[in-house]
Amino acid sequence: MRRKWLMVFCALAAAGCMVTACGGAEEKATEKASETQTESVAETETQQVTEKETEPETQTESETETAAQTEKATEEAAAEPKIMYVVSDVYIRQTADASSEAVAVAHLGDEVTAVPEDGKWCKVKLGDKEGYVVKDYLTDSKEEADQAVKSEEAAKAAAEAAAQAAQPQAAPSGGGVYEVSRQAFDDCDGSGHGYYEITYSDGSVRTEEY
């Protein structure tokens, strides 16, 4: 009887060992699978973070390069000589300075070759003369220049008509000298000042500032 119970006990112990061994193996397999899954998730997250960090940098570099190319193209286009038109009589200065010596006069409607400079000046060439003119006195529209010429001619005609209307209608009875005509000349510096050239009946000419 005792031997029989001993054999049963041994059988139970052996079964317990097998269960324990299997459970340990399963637990190890589970732990290994869990570790593998954790490593895979970590790799995926690392890759996503790397892509996120790299993508904006690449995009920013591309945008910066495009902006630089656009700016360079704009600068090159601005530096190219182009035909422009004078919209008011103005001095062509030796340097880009209002107090610089005048080398020539660009008249209303003149066509010049111009290269825009930094600031308010343009480098221009008119015939064999080169110098600088304030940008405000130039336009790249021929229509605008033609309209300015027409306006100026109309203004001069009105001024001459007013001057003639102010003249005596007939020579003085005493036969004295009288004004025959009066023509306005602008100073070409944009100030609005200039002078009248007055012709008298005896052929003499006098100037009068305005």
Results as ranks from 00 to 15, higher is better:
residue 111 E to H: 02
residue 161 A to H: 11
residue 122 C to N: 13
residue 170 A to Y: 04
residue 139 T to M: 06
residue 156 K to Y: 04
residue 175 G to L: 02
residue 115 V to K: 02
residue 130 E to C: 06
residue 182 R to K: 15
residue 115 V to Y: 05
residue 167 Q to G: 11
residue 109 G to Y: 01
residue 151 S to F: 04
residue 144 E to V: 13
residue 109 G to D: 01
residue 99 S to V: 10
residue 80 E to N: 10
residue 139 T to I: 02
residue 141 S to T: 05
residue 145 A to E: 08
residue 181 S to A: 07
residue 113 T to R: 04
residue 134 V to I: 07
residue 123 K to M: 07
residue 93 R to T: 01
residue 96 A to L: 07
residue 135 K to S: 14
residue 154 A to Y: 10
residue 119 G to T: 12
residue 105 V to Q: 07
residue 175 G to H: 04
residue 92 I to K: 00
residue 118 D to K: 10
residue 84 M to G: 03
residue 132 Y to N: 02
residue 166 A to I: 03
residue 133 V to E: 02
residue 158 A to Y: 08
residue 172 P to T: 06
residue 180 V to S: 12
residue 143 E to C: 01
residue 94 Q to C: 07
residue 157 A to L: 13
residue 107 H to M: 08
residue 110 D to P: 00
residue 82 K to E: 12
residue 108 L to D: 00
residue 160 E to W: 00
residue 138 L to Y: 05
residue 80 E to M: 13
residue 100 S to A: 15
residue 146 D to A: 08
residue 174 G to A: 09
residue 81 P to S: 14
residue 110 D to M: 11
residue 136 D to G: 05
residue 116 P to W: 10
residue 84 M to F: 12
residue 90 V to Q: 08
residue 146 D to Y: 04
residue 153 E to W: 03
residue 102 A to S: 15
residue 105 V to L: 08
residue 140 D to P: 00
residue 98 A to G: 08
residue 116 P to F: 00
residue 180 V to T: 15
residue 117 E to I: 08
residue 125 K to E: 12
residue 91 Y to K: 04
residue 166 A to C: 02
residue 134 V to D: 07
residue 91 Y to R: 03
residue 117 E to N: 12
residue 81 P to M: 12
residue 88 S to M: 07
residue 144 E to W: 11
residue 157 A to T: 13
residue 107 H to V: 11
residue 171 A to D: 02
residue 96 A to P: 10
residue 104 A to F: 10
residue 120 K to E: 14
residue 91 Y to I: 00
residue 178 Y to S: 06
residue 91 Y to C: 04
residue 134 V to P: 07
residue 101 E to C: 08
residue 105 V to T: 15
residue 117 E to T: 09
residue 176 G to M: 02
residue 179 E to A: 01
residue 115 V to S: 02
residue 101 E to I: 12
residue 158 A to T: 14
residue 118 D to S: 12
residue 112 V to P: 05
residue 128 D to G: 03
residue 115 V to F: 00
residue 131 G to T: 01
residue 86 V to I: 11
residue 80 E to A: 15
residue 156 K to Q: 13
residue 141 S to G: 10
residue 80 E to Q: 15
residue 117 E to F: 00
residue 173 S to T: 03
residue 84 M to V: 12
residue 117 E to S: 10
residue 158 A to H: 05
residue 169 Q to V: 10
residue 97 D to I: 06
residue 149 V to W: 08
residue 90 V to R: 00
residue 102 A to R: 05
residue 161 A to I: 04
residue 131 G to I: 00
residue 166 A to R: 06
residue 137 Y to E: 02
residue 86 V to H: 07
residue 178 Y to G: 06
residue 112 V to R: 03
residue 159 A to H: 06
residue 114 A to W: 02
residue 147 Q to I: 06
residue 132 Y to D: 02
residue 182 R to P: 12
residue 91 Y to W: 06
residue 176 G to Y: 09
residue 88 S to Y: 11
residue 146 D to E: 11
residue 117 E to D: 13
residue 166 A to S: 14
residue 85 Y to F: 14
residue 110 D to F: 11
residue 109 G to V: 01
residue 144 E to K: 15
residue 92 I to Q: 00
residue 97 D to R: 10
residue 180 V to D: 15
residue 172 P to Q: 06
residue 108 L to A: 01
residue 135 K to N: 09
residue 134 V to F: 05
